[in-house]
Design a binder for these strands. Sequence first.
RNA 1: GGCACUGUGGCCGAGUGGCUAGGCAGAGGUCUGCAAAACCUUUUACAGCGGUUCGAAUCCGCUCAGUGCCUCCA
Length: 495
Amino acid sequence: MQIKVGKLKVFNSLTRQKEDFQPLTPPFVGMYVCGPTVYSNVHLGNVRTFLSFDVINRYLRYIGYKVRYVRNITDVGHLSDTGEDKISKKAKLDQLEPMEIVQMYSNDFHHVMSQFNTIPPDIEPSAIGHLMEQIEMTRKLIENGYAYESNGSVYFDVGKYNKAHKYGILSGRNIEDLMSDTRDLDGGADKRNSLDFALWKRADPDHIMRWKTEWSDGFPGWHLECSVMSTKYLGEAFDIHGGGMDLKFPHHECEIAQNVGTYGKSGANYWLHTNMLTVNGQKMSKSLGNSFLPHELISGNHELLDRGYSPMTIRFFILQSHYASTLDFSNVALEAARRGYVRLSNGMRLIEKMKWKEDEGKLDERQSEQINKFCENCYHAMNDDFNTALTIGHLFNMVKKINSLHTRQLKFGEIGQEAFNRMKDTFLGFSRDVLGLKVEADVNYQSLINTILGEYKDAKYNRDFKRVDKLRAELKAEGIVAKDMKDKIEWAFEE
RNA sequence: GGCACUGUGGCCGAGUGGCUAGGCAGAGGUCUGCAAAACCUUUUACAGCGGUUCGAAUCCGCUCAGUGCCUCCA
């Protein structure tokens, strides 16, 4: 019996429909995801997005695609509400070099993502590393008539662009409404229209990060970097562009406009957006002050949390919902996930070591068919716009079988060798390789060693030297030496 | 105001025209020196009202409740 792997469908934000996934040049897939602005620690909402795309990346590879996964680091150009560059602002505040800020929070970001067992992107370009390309694209946009210089800054002319193309296709916005709705916003004096956005900004005298161009000493606009870096590494047309829902407008909308304005192509064919994390029904965000930092959730060191949760528990919790749904954080939900994850990871631990062997069981077609169905369902679930929650449900069905085999309530013979091997491959493939879950050795070694040393001490006291020797040999095999002191037993790593 | 989205059993959370999601919690049972685990069985679900249909949690309309984006956010 052959498993049907089926066809992958993805929900495309651009068309608001589920579509068959057809890469431009199979087996290659180009995927660009908007990375973090490294002016502070990543919060859990960021983690959710990158975790979701990690699973998407993993699954595409699992079903045989050769993925080039590009995720940027924004280290310049992202403005805060005061119109200041976020990195510059933070650098001034902390009296550090902007690049120190960038390095510090990039390190934090990488550390956190590796704790959650995400695969690093294949290319992680930074905005500052692509200044020349950004300046070049700005020139091209001026050349093509979609941008204008004003007082040392360069703006994208949304009104003009909208006449030739359509601005707002991604977010479903009507530009006339937006235009008539204008009030004077920051920098409004330089812009022809409030919807116009900066490609290049003239820097104030006290602005630290600045570069020389024909327009002014300044810095690039935020939206530009993604257009530049995605097309540089994936081409003018590529497959997937991802990011958080809150980037849809204006960030991704502007990106499309820049790409069309420069190359006549909109960039990605499929736009995927992850939904927000909420706390008590409200969006988790830095500005609302209701966000946890990953290390706070892991340690439990936060007023809203009853206890800490391991990175894999958090990963599991996040994957139990679909990436396009909001997910609410609460102690009870986390606790339920913690227990559920223990169950799943016990299943992983068991089947990793389990081998099929002949026993008294007689082949039961219904059993093997059921198992085949579970395996097939994992593909169906992931093929349906990466439905990790449903996939996990199917994995739990397999956990039941694994546990039954383990306790001998189900015989190997009943399911047959073929179904067993398929279940083992599929279960581990999906839990470990696709969902990126792993068994966490959450064992306190110190207390384990103390327990053994207690046994050692008792055996010595009872003059059971055979047992003493055995325990000492076993510890030694693990690189630990027991040391008999006058008044106590100690241990050390073997030199 | 404009544009989207959501409302599922005690809780979380999939499903989107007929076929058991799953997890957590609860109840009963099997197993067991005790305990735990495991396995089996199980509990009032689809916000409300109307419509389409042989049949709707699933499609359509209205109402109610909530959320996001429209200004920086993953």
